[in-house]
């Protein structure tokens, strides 16, 4: 299984907000353990979906630069369960960003029903403080392309979202298998 916890962007407004969908399916192996006979998507993976949707919103805004990592989940409130067959729509809003970090607020809906409220705080790990490689421009670009950000997205001025100049030839580096 690959470590993707959103399937596609429905909207992507650079530097402001995004909507992404995650379709929950019985083909996901973990659902057969969580729980046997009563599959429920773990809340932690819903948070990871927000981290991916929010992280890409932040990374795109930084022209695929920065070393933003999930540093804290200030808020995670669940109002129900995500079950196989549900389409989870993650609405993320970039509340604040500066050189040190970013705050993204999120709402998860299934249809009209509010399923979860999750805020994610990202910290920009400074050069020299990293102990291993984080996401590079190639990985961010691959994910944004794969998830359709450039198909539905808009730049801050309302024009179609484009790959930052000079990044078009950036070597694609797909995410690895599940796990670190």
């Amino acid at each position: 299984m690959r470590w993707y916890w959103i399937d596609r962007f429905l909207e992507f407004e650079s530097g402001r907000s995004s909507k992404a969908v995650k379709n929950v399916t019985l083909a996901e192996e973990h659902l057969h353990d969580h729980f046997p006979g009563y599959p429920v998507m773990p809340g932690a993976l819903i948070i990871e979906g927000f981290a991916q949707a929010g992280g890409l919103l932040v990374g795109e805004h930084l022209k695929l630069g920065g070393n933003m990592i999930l540093a804290k989940v200030p808020k995670a409130v669940f109002h129900g369960e995500a079950r196989p067959g549900d389409s989870l729509v993650y609405s993320s809003k970039l509340e604040y960003i500066n050189a040190e970090g970013a705050l993204v607020s999120g709402l998860c809906h299934v249809g009209e029903k509010l399923l979860a409220e999750v805020d994610i705080f990202f910290a920009n790990v400074q050069e020299g403080q990293r102990t291993r490689d984080l996401f590079g421009p190639g990985e961010l670009l691959s994910m944004l392309k794969l998830l359709g950000a450039y198909d539905v997205g808009h730049a801050a001025d309302g024009t179609p979202l484009k790959v930052p100049p000079g990044m078009e030839t950036q070597a694609a580096r797909p995410l690895g298998m599940a796990g670190p």
Binding site: Y96, L103, F121
Partner: peptide, 13 residues
Amino acid sequence: SIDFLDIVFRLEK
């Protein structure tokens, strides 16, 4: 420690 950065963010906003 990470909360201090979060608090600074929220104060700025």
